[in-house]
Design a protein around this nucleic acid. Sequence first.
DNA 1: TAGCCCCAGTATCTAACGGATACCAGAATC
DNA 2: GATTCTGGTATCCGTTAGATACTGGGGCTA
Lengths: 121, 121
Amino acid sequence: MTLSHRDETACQAVSDVLSRVGDKWTVLVVEHLSEGPMRFNELRRLIGNISQKMLTTTLRGLERDGLVTRTVYPTIPPRVDYELTELGRELRAPVHALAGWARTNIQRINDARARFDGAQG
Amino acid sequence: MTLSHRDETACQAVSDVLSRVGDKWTVLVVEHLSEGPMRFNELRRLIGNISQKMLTTTLRGLERDGLVTRTVYPTIPPRVDYELTELGRELRAPVHALAGWARTNIQRINDARARFDGAQG
DNA sequence: TAGCCCCAGTATCTAACGGATACCAGAATC
DNA sequence: GATTCTGGTATCCGTTAGATACTGGGGCTA
């Protein structure tokens, strides 16, 4: 036995959090919000190929987890600002560390994939 | 515009890698393999509630990305060892950093979720 | 010798999810 | 009066996650 039960429980919790961080859009949204508060369609335009539904879903998830605040201004047309919370800003460092690893090694991973697919294909 | 096109492309690549790291089982598998090489059903028992198919899928993905090696011993019964590659071992540090953040803040996230669900529900 | 287990998977099926498209209200603009 | 901008929701569909059942060869057991 390499891990205690307590560690395993912690692993599940960590895995749960990483599932949020690792989904397709979350990192992109957090990266953009690192620059400061941003409106819904502003984010949408910056990310480019995200649908309204997925941006809504992603932002709701981040809001639910306390990583982002949502501020509605009841103007016409409506204005909704999204901004990283303190917790969200604390997340930037470890995410950037992992992102740095990814940037450094993306070539090795792509090579490995090409090799694997070639060998199997 | 906060990010250049080159940065956006890098973000996509990073997001791609994070999707792999962030899926439900990958981190757990990598954590267990950090202890050394391990057999299929050994991993299965340690993780506990993972199905055979998902463990196979997860390990294939890690193998494809060059993070894990798969060694088959043609014995009866068959024996298959999985082991982190150098690239896989390099991944441990940033993953542990993020996992550390998750462990530190899991309570804050769960509190935020309870608050959010309570307010909406 | 029929029935069970172990091993590392594959095959099949379904529930959930991602994502595209269409629609909403209300004011301004053309 | 039609279109645009705002930040969404509703609906549909194809893909995927994940559970369940099965494979096959050897060994144990009753």
